[in-house]
Design a protein around this nucleic acid. Structure first.
Lengths: 200, 200, 200, 200
DNA sequence: CATGAATGAGAGTTCATTCAT
DNA sequence: CATGAATGAACTCTCATTCAT
């Protein structure tokens, strides 16, 4: 993979444009309908351009995932960092994550489509499995920090992290069928549940 | 849809065999690779046989889902019914559900593949969305029952049900990357978390 | 081809039943939709029965054609024979033919479907070409007879026969789009046209 | 449907080439044998190319029909227009139509194959039924014009038009079994028949 | 840089036919 | 006699990819 800095400005702009088009198609029509032809049409370019700028469909979809994850990181990072380590950081994490999900529905929808649609390849880890694992691990670390500060009781941090991440991720799916879901309220309830459930 | 009783013994056996083959392929190679050709090859029959016994791929995949859900129902049903309504029933639900997941990994893997892979059709509800919704609703009812018995405090039962179902479902995904996961232990932790989190 | 007399009564009844079913499907749904499965379903038997009673689909369709042609012959034959040779016989031919077409729309529709749908085989005469040719020849003979009696002038009888047969056959097609067509009136006009056109 | 002018020169050439190949296969082997594979093989390209240039088989076959009809129009139009309205125009119509049929046997053969082979779709008019109807109507109008000029007597113009069109169309079928048919002579006989039959 | 054109593999589906029971 | 079951070939169509221009 070439780094961003090795690319010209125009090239980066084209890639950005294509990735955005892919997100649009994925969000609106789903993984199966997100053919290169459909994406090219949405962007208003020819299929060849995509092949020219991306090694293949896989790289394009990776870029979609990376793009959304990067945005999420940019949004959540400062908020979590600003919080006091431990319970407060956990709250910031959950709140900012759900805020982000609520505010970037299309991007999240596209992300989930790629995660769900990508076929596993024999002999390789599940597609985007490492990313998931990293997220769980990071969350487990925050919970452990809460234990260290004494705000949280003893429990298996990985198990709790798995449950919490799943509970957060469920919202994207939920929003599809119920766009009027009050995400803020869900965040509050989720935090109350986990705080009380994991409190000392 | 014809009923089981309108089918001959041989036909039911073939359908069963094909459904099992589909589950195998789905579990091992994922949704995208589960072509009729692949399934037929796995079973050792020709593609035409599948078309002969099923109206189409959709019906076959529906049968895969129905089959696993029916098995789950058979396993969980008696255990939940036997328990005292309220908290005890909730415990039976979570335990038996995770037990079932642990004991039917391939079936669950296949189920998830179908749920994830099935492309949405314009103007229709998300594929198997109703089934998901039903599961959440059933769980919410159990939580409400716990509130009525006084074992659980007041909270949004739907929100909690969403989180709990997501936390349970996460296990199937988890088992793919970590087959050694101690599901029993996860069940215990999950129950502790939710019981304490939702207790009066 | 076995003769009728070499068949048991039951067998003949079954063949009749299947041929009638084929006519129904052909008339209602067209050649392309007239699969053995569709015909078997319409009759209420299994596909195998058809294969048992007919050497193949070709023989079945031949039988459909033969059946309708035989009916037409039974209807028209006596009427034409009863007429005085020459112009009167010609009138009887055209009238009774159009009468028959008008009264056996489904059979004619089926007949036309088979004639149109049957794919030509390399090295063989056009399907049912001989039957068509026979019909033209017969008609040409009647016209020649009219010339001999002096009722008709000199002209190429084959050319006129071709035109007349085509003008008659056109009615079946016409009836499809315009079921209210007044066939009697068409017959009258057609006869006037040809009589005057070919009169001495 | 895109217009010709929105297509590149190369694309138009390819479409032309494919349409010609389709005509060849249709004329030589009939509708049933005119699969995309057969057409592609005849042209010497891969099946995909056809799908690339045509939305589907239907569009290709429509193009075959349109192509032949357009050629016919180009040939007949000026000849009919140049003639004095009434009987003379009618003569020009019949003569030029049969001339065209005689000179474009393969195209006509292909046209007839498509017309005959195209399966009817439930709820829609018969395939290319409107085109047929238009042809009959146009002919009826010419006959009516002949009545207005006093060259023709009173009769049902639609009935006569149906018969005349059928008599003309019969030639294509006839040419298949009898390639040596003298079309000119047939045209002469047909005109004499109809002129005398419809004359005042 | 970008395009249009072409490829070829693979998808699901249909269907006439065969055969053991 | 009749059936249900199975076959295997052929069908149209889709799509990621490649390539000459």
């Amino acid at each position: 993979m070439r780094s961003d800095s090795s690319r010209t400005f125009t090239e980066l702009a084209r890639r950005r444009q294509i990735v955005d088009g892919a997100i649009d198609v994925l969000a609106d029509e789903g993984y199966a309908a997100a053919s290169l032809a459909a994406i090219a049409q949405r962007v208003g370019i020819s299929k060849g351009v995509i092949s020219y700028h991306f090694a293949g469909k896989d790289e394009l979809l990776s870029e979609v995932v990376a793009s959304v994850l990067a945005q999420a990181g940019e949004y959540m990072g400062p908020r979590v960092t600003a919080a006091r380590p431990g319970l407060e950081a956990l709250r910031a994490y959950v709140r900012s994550n759900l805020d982000f999900i609520d505010g970037h529905r299309r991007g999240l929808r596209a992300l989930v489509e790629v995660l769900r649609g990508s076929p596993p390849r024999a002999g390789e880890p599940a597609p985007y499995g490492p990313e998931r694992e990293d997220a769980v691990t990071a969350l487990a670390r925050m919970l452990a920090e809460g234990q260290r500060t004494g705000e949280l009781t003893e429990f298996d941090t990985r198990h709790a992290a798995v449950a919490l991440r799943a509970s957060i991720d469920a919202v994207t799916e939920l929003l599809r069928t119920d766009p009027d879901l009050d995400v803020q309220s869900y965040a509050t309830d989720l935090l109350r549940l986990f705080e009380q459930g994991l409190a000392r």
